[in-house]
Design a protein around this nucleic acid. Sequence first.
DNA 1: CCCCTAATAGTAGGAACCGACTATACGGTA
DNA 2: TACCGTATAGTCGGTTCCTACTATTAGGGG
Lengths: 213, 213
Amino acid sequence: MWMAQRKISNTLALAVLGLLREQPMHPYEMAATLRERHKDSSFKVNSGSLYDTVEALVRHGWIEPVETARDGRRPERTVYATTELGQGEFVRWIDELLRMPVAEYPKFRAAVSYLGALGPDRAAEALVERAGHLAQRIEETNTVLADTVGSGKVPRLFMIETECALHAWEAELAWTRRTIAEIRDGSLFWPKVEQTEQGWTWSAPTSPEGTTR
Amino acid sequence: MWMAQRKISNTLALAVLGLLREQPMHPYEMAATLRERHKDSSFKVNSGSLYDTVEALVRHGWIEPVETARDGRRPERTVYATTELGQGEFVRWIDELLRMPVAEYPKFRAAVSYLGALGPDRAAEALVERAGHLAQRIEETNTVLADTVGSGKVPRLFMIETECALHAWEAELAWTRRTIAEIRDGSLFWPKVEQTEQGWTWSAPTSPEGTTR
DNA sequence: CCCCTAATAGTAGGAACCGACTATACGGTA
DNA sequence: TACCGTATAGTCGGTTCCTACTATTAGGGG
């Protein structure tokens, strides 16, 4: 009926193209390399998806098989390399992803949409737990950065997405903590919702700026 | 081969459960209501997915059809309502999503991973464009907040996820601007990668703290 | 030297997801 | 009044994605 509305959308393909810029590889090796370099926190590396993605890239002519070897009686490995076309698209794709922010739908924001459903106490409690996990993740990531970039093993530019993630998590942590505080001191007013014949109404805050002050 | 490893995962189901807490509805009305309330920036409202999701919720017994009406010769509408079970799961699900941060893979971070591939000038240029779009989106969102919560039409708690998103975008904008500055003043060193017989090497920065100072 | 686990490499089947499409009704307008 | 665009309500079919599974080999402890 029609075709290929907009290239390949899974960013795992971006990772594949990036790796094949360095040297030809077989898919399993790609997955292993991505994990080694901690790129698996930026790309969802899933063996099933990986093989599908590689096939899609071949269909589009962005990469091509260069060799199928077999080591003993292990499964046959197909080694792929990029094409000129693939390298061009790689750069164009990165450029486009950087330039245009696209709508994303993080699970956390979905849950925050219905924060009200938990009631103030349970909501605050849940956010406290999240804050703890976030703080821990931030600390772990700082450790990773320290013994890769920090110790000069890897140039900073090669781990720049980790700094980006760190910044995002720190912001989320800050928002979470601020919101906990606002729930606790009552400055985030928690309306009581009631159904009347006219529809839904909610109680208004008793004073203009929050209840307590 | 087996079943239901982990309840329903699409957060659109959360939105459905949230809406049905207020009153029974048919799917089309859910979509319309979500858009009216600006919840479509937290949930990906797609008619295809919506009907699939509703069916899945029925299969799990979280919601149930209560009526199938027909208005003239328009398509038949099936109206759904939540069940006790559904309401319980709704709250438990929100609680879980809030407590445990899960790995997400935003497209931007994937692209940032390969920022190096663009070269410093093009990378900076792309980030500048993104910063512009982000600033605009932030402004628009502020406008939306102003004439919903700001004018007292809607309690702040009901739009809290918008504040959350705003905070995240502001952080991303800040990181983007800082990174642009670092690229421009040379403090984000851009190594030149070369392939030798030993593998890959990259030029080290000429002075301990960045090249220029 | 044998067993067990981890690593190696990939396959297969189904669920989830999404975009395009269908079909009717309604309101304005030329 | 004939036409056109938009709102209503939902269906359909294919791609994408992912979970579980298969099969082999290397390595290490007992």
